[in-house]
Design a protein around this nucleic acid. Structure first.
Lengths: 208, 208, 208, 208
DNA sequence: CATGAATGAGAGTTCATTCAT
DNA sequence: GATGAATGAACTCTCATTCAT
């Protein structure tokens, strides 16, 4: 209940050593819990506890649980999108850039998968909230699509259905993250996994 | 998804041939609701209403909501597995058999994806229940793996990592079922979708 | 569910080696469970299980749970009363007969105490049922009163308030059965306990 | 039983002096209902109604029904103990002090008897809760034991088994509270009852 | 800003009882 | 005699949300 120490905001606001705004503390806690347990199972009390404050404080910052969930998703999708864009904007062959993205996401703990979240939260969210989440998801996908389109224009790869390719790519990455019932993955290391996934993807889309 | 094949009353009819046993009526209703709304959001009352009986009757047949959920999943996975096996056992080239499976599942309403369900139900299920669901899932996947292994042995295809291939195949089929925010899919018809998916999969795994 | 073997009733019906009538099997099971857990906590299903049959069978023999409970109590009180009468009818000094009764009940597992049962079951029983239980209890007490009255008439003891004495006697015997929080009783053996209890009772009522 | 002594606002009033804290209101209502109907029969809804609030408010103050029950018992035992101590600490002969205690408890509505409550609630309480109740009960008894021990040391009475005596004393007081099936008690007035009870107890333990 | 208190509306689960077979 | 199936009513407990402070 005293996990954050209130410090005076002296100089650079973006710096590291100081306290996060309460709103962000809540978002962080919510992200952690929602992604572990889903929307319905996590109570606002759980989030408040995890964030080191009371339920009423959470409601001071977010109107409803659904709104908080939407913000969580949109914010997470935004962060993933930014990371992808950052990696893809480096000046390297597409294959290598995709490899880097793959590695990055094999190591991330949170999956891309919105579908499960959508299903279980749908009936508790407003249409606006659902729409906002879907748009955030599509923008995330489009960060990959754009790379395919650009590479196609630059004749680096043949012209393909970029949307379909982007979704297929993400789907294959998720396969790489799949844990079998004995807890192991299909390949031993992230590098090996990425190599296999990208091999399939590349041949599948760009092979003749 | 043709949940029950009524009418084939060859042997002694179990009950008086009139209706489905209550237990199956419950399972049907539960399957429908769970797959639309997830585990947490669906109440046992909802299931009872959908099945046209009272909550207490549901509890007469299933000890807990979690147990009913597990049975639902296991039974569904079993039905999917059986259908896959049935299609794959026809005497045709592997490509054509896979094409048929793909078409069949593009037309099915229920997705294969257990992950979302797992996350949101995990903390409400016993270890045994989780294990039973995972095993049912793996047996479903193995119905495809086995076809790859058999075709590999018969030199119809090169030898591959069958588990990884099966999961990749299912992942790509799910991409085919993805609905964009405007409600449309990536391709106009099931045949076109199946052709594109299989094209990617086949080149990805068996292309040189 | 097959704990009792249906035997043909050949000769003496009261003999030992044969099966109890179903009604008595139920009463036995009910007695055991009610006295361990009270009226409310024991379900008719529990009793049926303990008796090796189904709930519906219990209802075949007893109209309601309350009726079964009443029968249980009345029957138990009757058995206790009979045992007391039997011991008290032996031709010995009153002190010695009381000593024997005391010993007998220190070794019995079931307490005499109806009060607790009354409180928790009262609102679930009909007036007739409550009355029947109270009368059974009073008849049990009167088996002791009668001995005091007879001994008074025979000048073996002074004349006393027999009802008050009988209740006081039973109350003291219950003290002898009291288990402290470490599980021990006040005295080491039943004989020692009985001696102390009777000493207090005898001096208290017949001392000058 | 004079559950609360309102008005004696000598120090700083805890709240705004207006009403009892909600927690105490709940405890009062619970005490009343539990002692009339037992643990199982009283629902949390009943308690909430009696206390003039909603069920959820009760759960805001007490984690479970079992916890509330335990608190009820512990608190009641504490109040009884305090009253006994208060009466026994007056400078009078032991007989007279015991007489006052007897009169006080013959007029109280609630019995001392924990046994019945224990049996019917046992399986719903945690070990800690059961232990807490037993300890509260023993401390209540010890308030009487201590008086016997002190009087023994002061040579006012012979040295006796104080624990056994305390339990016997309480058992006899309960006899004084016993209502026969026609609703009457053994003696007409509280004074007459107390005289008879104490006469038996005193001769029983201190008579030669 | 932040919180303690309060609640309405459910959720999962149990159970005494009935009834057709 | 005995039982499997079904149910209405109740029960314990949870939770998103509000509000006064």
């Amino acid at each position: 209940m005293a996990e954050q120490k209130q410090g005076r905001t002296l100089g650079r606001p973006k710096s590291k050593g100081k306290t996060l705004p309460t709103r962000d503390v809540i978002l962080q806690a919510a992200t952690r819990l929602f992604f572990e347990n889903g929307f319905q199972k996590v109570s606002v009390d759980d989030i408040a506890s995890e964030a080191g404050m009371t339920k009423a404080t959470v409601y001071y910052y977010f109107d409803t649980k659904a709104e908080l969930f939407k913000e969580t998703i949109v914010s997470l999708m935004g962060r993933i999108r930014e990371r992808i864009i950052q990696i893809l904007s480096i000046d390297k062959p597409l294959y290598e850039r995709l490899f880097d993205v793959t590695i990055a996401h094999l190591q991330a703990t949170t999956s891309f998968d919105l579908d499960g979240f959508m299903r279980e939260s749908r009936s508790s969210l407003s249409d606006e909230q659902i729409q906002a989440m879907k748009i955030a998801e599509e923008k995330m996908y489009s960060s990959i699509e754009d790379a395919f389109i650009a590479a196609g224009k630059a004749k680096e790869i043949p012209s393909i259905n970029a949307k379909f390719a982007a979704h297929s790519y993400i789907a294959l990455v998720k396969v790489g993250n799949y844990k079998q019932s004995d807890g192991t993955r299909f390949f031993a290391t992230a590098e090996e996994t990425a190599t296999n996934i990208l091999n399939v993807f590349w041949k599948g889309f760009f092979g003749k």
